[in-house]
Each structure stands twice: as structure tokens, then as C-alpha cells.
Design a binder for these strands. Structure first.
Lengths: 108, 108
DNA sequence: AGCAAAGGCATAGATAATCTAGGCCTAGAA
DNA sequence: TTCTAGGCCTAGATTATCTATGCCTTTGCT
């Protein structure tokens, strides 16, 4: 992964995390990830919407049509209880793997 | 990624890092990653050898047949100058992306 | 009124990386 | 001699991401 690309396998975790405080619509999820990461990460729409579809099917989020702050018809995504559990689990997995990576990188 | 799985996109970096101090043969690369990560990471052979092939084709490593410590015919892999540059570049990319991820995860 | 730009959802197809599951061979131990 | 661990490798499936679209609406500019 270069420039603004994502690290494969982490997009789901980031989306769930952004949804944790409350419902957010698709487009805004991408914007928040971009802003919160200080422009380091950029989620393409072609990655975002398929990811949201997967999460819907797994039951980690629910979607609801509504109106955005800018007066547009949007789909708000909301974490389910299962989604909350999934987020915790992904965080644990990520932390563990990251620790492994950092061990190798520092001590090799 | 769960249990002992790898984080996609980081295997190349880990292999290059293990090869940095000097030539290592394939099987031993996997063992070292496993050991150095305190058993947190497990590289499957079906991931390892294709990754080494890719790196050979990109010119990041060179391979040479030899005899292992256990008296077996093995292929030692050695970093090239390009491989060394690639390693630095992947480390920078990874650090940048990781910082982005951690920003999102902490501040969302 | 007309048009462009930006906001917004979505899919198809290509690409890439990993895992599963095998195959094959050898040295050394039991 | 037979078994186990060490060792190399590939085929095929799976999964996630990106590129490139298409389409619709609101707002603002001319």
C-alpha cells in the first residue's frame, strides 16, 4: 500500500469504529476516516459501499434512509449489538497482530 | 484476520526485514517470523513461497542453493540493493498508514 | 432558465494477496 | 525400515481492494 491506500483487512474495523458513537451515512464515513486520519487514509467509494454491504449481510450494521445535513437523501448506517462485539474482536485481533509485526520489525 | 493469521500487505515487509541481517533459507524465514513475533504470527508455506517468487521477480532478493544447518539442501534468500530500498519504503508506508489507523481508532 | 459542481449511492471487473490442500524429496531417529 | 521433521513448491479458491463507471439530486452561478 502506498500513498493514501488502505491497509487491507482494516477497513471493516475503521468503519465500525466510526459508527461507534452513532449513525453516520456512507459518504460521511469516508470523509470522517479521511479527516480523522489527518488525510493519511482515503477510502474509495468502490471499497466503502461493498464493505458496507458485507457488514449488512453479516448483521453488524443496519441501514436506514434519511436526510443528510446537506439536505440529500442518504443511507444512515448504525451499529448493531453484533457489530459492537465484532468491533471489539477486530480491535483485539489487530492489536495482537500489530504487536507481532512490531516485534519482528524491531528485533529481526 | 484472526488467531495466527497475517495482516495482508505486510508479509513482504516482514520477509525483507528478516533477510536484512543476512541470507536465510525459506523454511527458516517462516520460523523466525513465528519466533520473533512470540508465536503471534504464523506464515503458511503457501503464502511464503509465492511471496518469495514475487520478490525474486521484482529483483528484491536473490536466491542461492546451499546446505542448511540441519544438512538439507535449501535455498538461501539474500536482499539486493533494491530490496533494501524496498524495505525502507515499505516501512515508511506502513508507519504512515498505521498512524492514520491509530488516529481514527483513538479519536473517532 | 440553464448548467456545473459537489454530494451521494451503487455495481462490474480487474488485480492482488493470502490460505487450503495437496505433492514431492531427504536426513536422521527409533 | 519406517516414521517424523525439515524442506521446496504449485494449483485453486477466497477475499478485499481499487478503477472506472453510471445515475440521481441539490445548490449556486451566470
Amino acid at each position: 500500500m502506498a500513498k493514501n491506500e488502505m491497509l487491507p483487512g482494516t477497513l471493516g474495523m475503521l468503519i465500525l469504529r466510526v459508527l461507534q458513537p452513532g449513525p453516520v451515512h456512507g459518504y460521511a464515513i469516508a470523509q470522517r476516516i479521511h479527516a480523522l486520519s489527518k488525510e493519511l487514509l482515503q477510502v474509495e467509494e468502490g471499497s466503502l459501499y461493498p464493505a458496507l454491504q458485507r457488514m449488512l449481510m453479516k448483521g453488524w450494521v443496519r441501514a436506514e434512509w434519511g436526510i443528510s445535513e446537506t439536505n440529500r437523501k442518504v443511507r444512515f448506517y448504525k451499529l448493531t449489538a453484533a457489530g459492537r462485539r465484532q468491533l471489539q474482536s477486530e480491535i483485539e485481533d489487530f492489536d495482537r497482530v500489530l504487536q507481532g509485526i512490531q516485534s519482528v520489525m524491531s528485533k529481526a
